[in-house]
Design a protein around this nucleic acid. Structure first.
Length: 430
RNA sequence: GUGGAUGUAGCUCAGUGGUAGAGCCCCGGAUUGUGGCUCCGGUGGUCGUGGGUUCGAUCCCCAUCAUCCACCCCA
């Protein structure tokens, strides 16, 4: 029985397939990250992508856009409210607390994986996107702030991005100072309510600090006279910030102080920073983080200082791509394409391929499969990206030999006894 | 969530109110055992989807889905 044409099923909006052509870039980037984390003494942590909804509501802030309208929240079969994680910090804190990692000890952790936010997709902004994040717990001083910033700076160095990113820096003060300033600011804005535009009125309850960033000329004068965050920093935060700047100066890291830099998530305090680029249009923030000393306590743990950041992998890959910074050799492919020239040579080729793979574990060898004319076999050898083709036909089979042909250079082809191949290939590939 | 642009072959794109084309890719041949260059031939399309107007719609209208850009927000 013929069925009516099934409705075409496609990927969920804003959720992308990573195709074979893309994955080498990701592996290149992920490899750099993995190496770097080890060099800085950070350990990887992996947590589930689903958590109880309350975890995010409590940590990110009830009135943030993320919690109010961007979370993938659904009911489990038993009625619990679950949420696909919109960011990594909350899960990290939860896991660390749950397993006693914060009990009288410090931690330097990193994670990597998919996050989910129901936003309108755009270039560099997707509903399922991927972050690499760093979390430190138990370090109070500005040295660890500097450490995580230096780590990120070194990653740009490794990737060749240093010239294309800018570090913006600010301090929000202690949680108390920030909260107090926020109140002062809201009071001030309330007094000038008639000047506020629609956007700002909305931000008044969600993110009043953002109002300072408004470009509306009608509000410029009023904003000019608004109370300043820097004047409301507590003494300790002020010193913390100064010390951090001294450390970054000493390490030769350039930064721009941006007093309007405000992280959207409620849990941030004191140091906040952002790495931005001009090369990606309006989605220019490539890495952002800061200090969240109050978060562990807020989630029911003991007061624990914490610093971290998250970076958007899609945005970084996009950046690497537009700047053509992924090296050719990172783009995959294989070294050798082994092809039987006719059907009769299939078995010989297959067993030889397996032998070579046993003898040369580093060798990337693709065996021709699928038959076809000799011409098409050669075409596939070319397409495979291999530098060397190994051919086995009637002549070779009768003498236990193999023809070795160079695909990427003008060089006479050779014929070798099969037994001599491992040594020969070893030389050529190395 | 708001505003705008765009959906035609696997990819990049032309095109017309009378049921479609190029380049690349793929396959075959010129070249019985030598890919990349050249030449010749071939496969491949419910013109995003669903309605409407019309004798007739890929084209006009409406809706819907998706992508892109900006806003918002964020990594």
């Amino acid at each position: 029985m013929s069925q009516p044409a099934a409705k075409k099923i496609q990927a969920i909006r804003g959720m992308n397939d990573l195709l074979p052509g893309d994955s080498p870039r990701w592996q290149f980037f992920e490899g750099k990250v993995r190496q770097l984390m080890a060099r800085y003494g950070f350990d990887e942590i992996r947590t589930p992508i689903v958590e109880q909804t309350a975890l995010f509501a409590r940590s990110i802030g009830e009135v943030t856009d993320i919690v109010e309208k961007e979370m993938y929240t659904f009911e489990d079969r038993n009625g619990d409210s679950l949420t696909l994680r919109p960011e990594g910090t909350a899960s990290c804190v939860r896991a660390a607390m749950e397993h006693g990692l914060l009990h009288n000890q410090t931690q330097r952790l990193w994670y990597q994986g998919p996050m989910f936010r129901h936003e309108r997709p755009q270039k560099g902004r997707y509903r399922q996107f991927h972050q690499v994040g760093v979390e430190t717990y138990g370090f109070e001083g500005p040295d660890v702030d500097a450490e995580v910033i230096l780590l990120s700076a070194r990653l740009w160095q490794e990737l060749g991005l240093t010239q294309h990113v800018t570090l913006e820096l600010n301090s929000l003060g202690s949680a108390e100072a920030r909260a107090a300033y926020r109140e002062t600011l809201v009071d001030y804005f309330e007094q000038h309510r008639e000047i506020l535009d629609e956007d700002s009125l909305r931000r008044l309850s969600s993110n009043p600090l953002r109002i300072l960033d408004s470009k509306n000329p009608a509000m410029a004068e009023m904003l000019e006279n608004a109370p300043r965050l820097m004047d409301h920093l507590d003494q300790e935060s002020r010193e913390h910030f100064e010390q951090l700047k001294t450390m970054l100066d000493a390490a030769g890291i350039h930064y721009v102080i941006n007093p309007r830099l405000v992280r959207g998530l409620d849990y941030y305090c004191r140091t906040v920073f952002e790495w931005t680029t001009q090369a990606l249009g309006s989605q220019g923030t490539v890495c952002a983080g800061g200090r969240y000393d109050g978060l562990v306590e807020q989630l029911g743990g003991k007061p624990t200082p914490a610093v971290g950041f998250a970076m958007g992998i899609e945005r970084l890959i996009l950046l690497l791509d537009t700047l053509q910074l992924v090296p050719e050799e990172a783009l995959g492919g294989c070294d050798v394409y082994l092809l039987p020239m006719d059907e009769a040579a299939t078995l010989t080729a297959l067993t030889l391929a397996e032998q070579l793979r046993s003898q040369l574990p580093e060798l990337r060898l693709q065996l021709h499969c699928g038959g076809g004319s000799f011409k098409s076999r050669m075409k596939k050898a070319d397409k495979s990206g291999a530098t060397i083709a190994l051919l086995i036909g009637e002549d070779e089979r009768q003498t236990d030999a193999v023809t070795l042909k160079f695909l990427r250079e003008e060089r006479e082809q050779q014929r070798h006894p099969q037994a001599a191949l491992p040594e020969r290939l070893q030389d050529l590939i190395a």
